[in-house]
Design a protein around this nucleic acid. Structure first.
Length: 787
DNA sequence: GTGTCAGCGCTTTTT
DNA sequence: GCGCTGACAC
């Protein structure tokens, strides 16, 4: 089929048409990785080597899964419904829903997101009287999630000291609490699913027989548990087609294990390793810059990107005195880009940490340039939305104490902390849910609690036959949430979001293909529905149906109610996290958030030691290599223009910090760079590094090394500089003039470019011939006027 | 039960 | 420098 394989380069073609054997595709940035993955699936099906139900394709984000689905349907005229395409969590959820009894879960089990999990942990610790100072809830959360991602249950964790034993004990109590409440957290979805397959041979055999074509995107981001889950599904005979890029592994901090790539190669005896090195995104100088940099990493599978595009523009580098001056320069460059016809949406400003966005935002606002910041609260994470969802959860599952605690007194109905504690105590005493414990609490508190219980019971009864959107709307009204926000001065946005939640429910119903009036809380029987794909494989292997506890698909074509599906959807897909979409706007985001995206012009900002590479990464093993990969990801986002900038001083955590430029500059090819400010040789900076042992390069060499305070020492008493134009009129007082030639004992000859302050605070900005631009305190610096 | 204020922490993030 | 959390006062 020439149309499908047309325009593939030889490596891509080879990857797409590999035999059904384990394969590892090392796909560099911009090498057409997604295209290969999608074309591979399409090719397998068109050739008749695979039928849709034998395909399982897994990604990390819903966005990637959606994109894969969309592009695949565009490529294939056939129904892609039989395929399992989704995130690890989404697919595990699907499997657990289908086999909830085997997995030991209630049919209506709910998914806790990270915030729900933390509040569940806090509630647990309060009930057990655990000192939050000694055992912070956040640390316990990390401990639990980490253990689960390693595949470890409490009994499997090796606790060497009393402290860890306490954590293990709490981990166990937490798991019991979740089990009683019928809720699972994110890592539990994966671990539960893994155990389901591991402990149930007929079920495992069924899925292994079914998924003969397993494809994994972003393989370098998989953690140990995800890899183990994949191995279980692959069994002895199924081929895994893994696509990834070790150079773009930037998620070690959340458990990603690049080592999985190497393990996969070894354990599956991968004979088909294909490198996609042809880059279709960036111009030559940009690509050279990326290649040079990443070559400094020791442990790589090895790859070098090439392009047919010309060299293009050199990479521009700019040094500034302060972060606000850096922002000013960025804005000027953006204006120039826009003038040359680049649209705002094709310009991205990247930074290492979110805190850096503010200065840039301010400057953009002042310049009147529309921008969009990625990150921040997402739709389903908003408090009013979470409140509404909590009511829905409580209706569906009375045992969900997290939901109960969240809304028992919201909107306020006279139930105080004391009463809630009484309920929690009673629940513990009788080993039941908080909702069930309400009758045990008597007195005045009992009556308001009773009213709440009555309200929930009423909601549960009255929504019995309602459709999902009707249910959501009913709950928003009956719970009192709508009335509450109507009364709030700032409640308008929240009200709109609640309305949006009703719309989201309607959209969900239509996307899932339910009838509009399908009751939200019963398992729908769709007319003409075929057997559930997860039970019967395409070639009619149905012997597994005789196994105990496997639902009869003829009776239950769906495995969850629309409401349960919607609640899962809300947890698994928290929604868009972009601010106001729509308008053509400059894109601001962290480097992490930029992964997978591309822009005509990219600014990488704050390239300073301690910031990028980040100082905290020095403590982590391989931290510096991960930072370098992060820089590699940042560089490879750019198509035509790349700008790198750093500032001598920067406001951070309310303090001015003085930084030196990132070591990454020393790892870039000089021939591809164009310094807009003079490049200062490393040895010449601040009078030489020898005077400053213990900072700069050294802190990376010594893990855990403490630097005094949070700001770097400096041998010139240079204070944070205001914009250069500020106080030029003070020139006469200081004895210097802008434009005047001067001489400094360390930096040599230069020209005054700005002056500010007076008396002991007088400062001059000087552009030195060999050392670039610096702010100098005139009372300290030995600066002489040159006639 | 609601409002205020001090204290804390602060890299990156998806599910 | 800022936003969130928890303790305490009214």
């Amino acid at each position: 089929m020439p149309d499908l394989l047309a325009n593939l380069n030889p490596e891509q073609l080879a990857a797409v048409t590999l035999p059904n054997e384990p394969a590892l595709i090392l796909a560099g940035a911009g090498s057409g990785k997604t295209r290969v993955l999608i074309t591979r699936i399409a090719w397998l099906i068109r050739q008749g080597y695979a039928s849709p139900p034998t395909v399982l394709a897994v990604t990390f984000t819903n966005k990637a899964a959606r994109e894969m689905m969309a592009r695949l349907s565009a490529l294939l005229p056939i129904d892609t419904r039989g395929m399992w395409i989704g995130t690890f969590h989404g697919l595990c959820n699907r499997m657990l829903r289908a086999h909830y009894r085997d997995a030991g879960l209630p049919q209506t089990f709910q998914i806790l997101d990270t915030a729900d999990q933390l509040s569940a942990i806090k509630r647990l610790m309060k009930g057990l009287n655990v000192d939050d100072e000694k055992y912070p809830a956040k640390n316990l959360q990390y401990f639990i999630n980490n253990a689960k991602e390693q595949g470890l249950r409490p009994k499997d964790v090796d606790a060497t000291d009393a402290f860890n034993r306490k954590f293990v004990e709490l981990y166990e109590a937490y798991d019991q609490q979740c089990q009683r409440e019928g809720v699972v957290d994110f890592p539990e979805l994966l671990l539960r699913c893994y155990e389901l397959l591991a402990h149930n041979p007929p079920l495992r055999a069924h899925y292994q027989a079914r998924f003969r074509n397993i494809l994994v995107d972003e393989f370098q981001d998989t953690n140990k548990l995800q890899y183990a889950w994949l191995k279980l599904l692959a069994g002895e005979h199924n081929a895994i087609f893994a696509v990834g890029d070790d150079d773009q592994s930037i998620y070690a901090f959340r458990g990603a294990n690049v080592g999985n790539m190497h393990d996969f190669e070894r354990e599956f005896r991968v004979r088909n390793l294909i490198k996609l090195e042809q880059n279709y995104r960036s111009h030559g100088h940009i690509l050279d810059t990326a290649n040079y940099l990443i070559a400094n990493n020791a442990r790589r599978l090895g790859k070098n990107l090439r392009t047919d595009a010309g060299h293009g523009e050199p990479v521009r580098v700019y040094e500034s005195a302060t972060d606000s001056q850096e922002a000013g320069w960025i804005v000027e460059e953006i204006k120039a880009l826009i003038n040359t016809g680049v649209s705002r949406g094709e310009v991205a400003v990247l930074y290492r940490s979110n805190a850096q966005s503010r200065t840039i935002e301010h400057t953009l606002v002042n310049a009147g340039i529309p921008y969009r910041v990625y990150g921040g609260l997402r739709f389903f994470e908003r408090q009013e939305v979470k409140h509404a969802l909590a009511y829905l959860r409580l209706i569906d599952n009375p045992n969900d104490d997290t939901a109960f605690a969240r809304v028992v007194n919201f909107p306020t109905r006279g139930i105080g902390a004391r009463s809630i504690e009484q309920v929690a105590d009673a629940a513990r005493l009788y080993n039941c849910s908080m909702a069930a414990a309400v009758p045990y609490v008597t007195g005045k508190a009992g009556s308001s609690l009773g009213a709440f219980a009555t309200l929930i019971a009423k909601m549960r009864a009255e929504t019995q036959q309602m459709s999902l959107p009707e249910t959501v709307e009913y709950v928003v009204r009956t719970s009192g949430l709508a009335a509450f926000y109507e009364g709030e001065r700032e409640g308008q946005d929240r009200l709109e979001n609640l309305q949006e939640l009703v719309n989201a429910a309607a959209a969900f119903v239509s996307e899932e293909g339910y009838g509009l009036d399908t009751p939200a809380r019963s398992i729908p029987l769709r007319p003409g529905a075929t057997a559930v794909p997860e039970i019967v494989s395409d070639d009619g292997e149905i012997e597994v149906l005789d196994a105990p506890n496997i639902a009869d698909p003829a009776q239950n074509p769906d495995t969850m109610t629309p409401l349960a599906g919607f609640l899962s959807h809300a947890s698994l897909e928290a929604g868009d996290n972009q601010a106001q979409a729509g308008q053509d706007a400059v894109q601001l985001m962290t480097v992490h958030a930029a992964k997978g995206l591309e822009f005509t012009a990219v600014f990488i900002t704050g390239l300073e030691e301690g910031l990028f590479p980040h100082e905290n990464s020095a403590q982590e093993s391989d931290g510096l290599e991960e930072e370098r990969r992060l820089m590699y990801v940042a560089i490879t986002r750019a198509k035509e223009r790349l700008y790198l900038s750093f500032a001598q001083s920067r406001m951070l955590h309310g303090q001015t910090r003085y930084n030196i430029r990132s070591r990454f500059f020393d790892e870039l090819p000089e021939g591809s760079l164009k310094w807009l400010t003079p490049k200062v040789e490393a040895g010449a900076r601040w009078g030489g590094r020898a005077d400053n042992a213990g900072w700069g390069r050294d802190w990376f060499a010594r893990p855990g090394h403490e630097r005094g305070g949070s700001s770097y020492p400096r041998d010139e008493a240079v204070s944070a500089a205001l914009p250069a134009f500020a106080n030029q009129q003070r020139a006469a007082e200081s004895g210097f003039k802008v434009g005047q030639a001067v001489f400094h004992t360390k930096f040599g000859e230069g020209t005054v470019t700005a002056l500010e302050g007076s008396g002991g605070d007088a400062r001059a900005q000087v552009r030195f011939k060999r050392h670039g631009e610096k702010w100098l305190a005139l009372s300290v610096a030995k600066l002489q006027a040159v006639e």
